[in-house]
């Protein structure tokens, strides 16, 4: 790879622009396919397949050619509502797993007390915070506060978005009451079925770090559903 092409590729990744590096493995020639195409490989006949692979975030060889397409997509995001004790474990776990993490909490003391290094923090009410975040199809949203006036607006915003995962901390009883309130806000049962509650895979977790493991495991399970 030419150093100049590496710099261009890194610039696209930094700008969160989905991009593909196409390599002719027979010769080592390479092209970069993003908003435009630059490089040494003639790609006209394969641009359709390359763009499809970029959209599907699926790297792979193009059949009956020596071309390999490496897709670089922006990292998935995890939005954590509530900088509580569990968040202190969930933030680093999610970062290790490759997520960009945003933490929303209007309580400044919670944001600064937690070990949230590397996460983007938004000190605001969840309804305003969620407007800044604008969850997309590669975003997971987890509410951890237990407090309806913080959790409910965040869940409502998440339900109105294409977020791929929505989880809410709380016991079955708490969750049933939460669903009742959200039904009162006009959400249907099929909307509410998107919320995972009690949140996380059932691994008998007890401590906050264990609960964080169960949550990130369920987020990954959902993100990768159908990948195998």
């Amino acid at each position: 790879m030419k150093a100049r092409l590496l710099s261009q590729l890194q610039a696209c990744i930094a700008a969160k622009e989905p991009v593909a590096l196409v390599t002719d493995t027979a010769t080592g020639a390479q092209s970069l396919v993003g908003e435009d195409v630059q490089g040494d490989v003639p790609l006209e006949a394969h641009l359709g397949e390359i763009k499809r692979r970029i959209a599907a975030d699926k790297s792979g060889a193009i059949e009956n050619t020596s071309l390999f397409v490496r897709v670089y997509s922006p990292n998935p995001r995890l939005v954590v509502v509530g900088a509580v004790h569990i968040a202190q474990s969930l933030v680093p776990l999610a970062q290790i797993a490759g997520f960009e993490v945003v933490v929303i909490d209007p309580r400044a003391a919670f944001l600064t007390a937690g070990k949230l290094a590397g996460a983007t923090t938004i000190e605001d009410w969840p309804d305003d915070g969620m407007k800044l975040v604008r969850p997309d199809g590669r975003t997971a949203v987890v509410t951890l506060t237990h407090d309806p006036k913080l959790d409910d607006p965040a869940l409502a915003a998440a339900l109105r978005s294409p977020a791929f995962y929505i989880g809410a901390l709380g016991s079955r009883k708490t969750h049933d009451k939460r669903l009742q309130r959200l039904r009162g806000d006009g959400f249907t049962d099929s909307d509410l079925a998107r919320i995972r509650g009690p949140v996380g895979l059932d691994i008998n977790a007890i401590s906050p770090p264990e609960i964080a493991v169960s949550i990130i495991a369920q987020v990954i399970e959902t993100l990768r559903a159908g990948a195998k």
Binding site: M1, Q10, I13, T23, T25, F68, Y72, I96, G98
Partner: peptide, 26 residues
């Protein structure tokens, strides 16, 4: 830690004067 970490590492090594190679599962 995403896969782009390997690219960043190559850029850092090059800046430090090292020779570098990239291996990719194709």
């Amino acid at each position: 830690m995403s896969e782009t970490h390997a690219l960043d590492q190559i850029a850092a090594w090059r800046a430090a004067g090292r020779k570098t190679a990239l291996a990719t599962v194709v």
